[in-house]
Amino acid sequence: MNPDVTEVLALVVLLVVAVVATVAVLTRDPARQAVVLAVLGLTLALLFTVLQAPDVALSQLGVGTAITPLLIMLTLRRIRRGDAPDETGTKESAPEGEDR
C-alpha cells in the first residue's frame, strides 16, 4: 500500500517535531529554550491538525505556544531580578519597550 498524502505530510511534520524537540532540549539557555518550546508547540499543533485532531491542536496552540513559554519567561524575569539585588542597576529590556 502506498501512503496517501496525509500520511506523507504527517511523517514530514513528525520528523520536524523530533528535530525541534531535540533542539529544545539542547538549547541550554532557558530564555532561548522558551522560544524553541513555542516553536515546538506550533509544530505539534500542526501535526495534530494533520492527524485530524483540531480540538487538540487548538489547545496545544494555546498551551504550548502561549502559556508555557510565557510562564517560563515570567519565571526567568523574577529570577534575573533576584540575581541583581540592586534594582536600579539593572535595566531590563522589556519587549513592550518599558521605560523604567
Binding site: L14, V17, A21, A24, V25, R28, D29, P30, Q33, A34, L37, L40, L44, L47, F48, V56, Q60, G64, T68, I72, T75, L76, I79
Partner: peptide, 16 residues
C-alpha cells in the same frame, strides 16, 4: 527552568 522545559518536551511524547 531548563529542566522544567525538558519535562514539557518529554510529555509531548505522550501526545504524539
Amino acid at each position: 527552568v531548563h529542566a522544567v522545559g525538558c519535562l514539557a518536551v518529554a510529555q509531548s511524547a505522550t501526545y504524539v
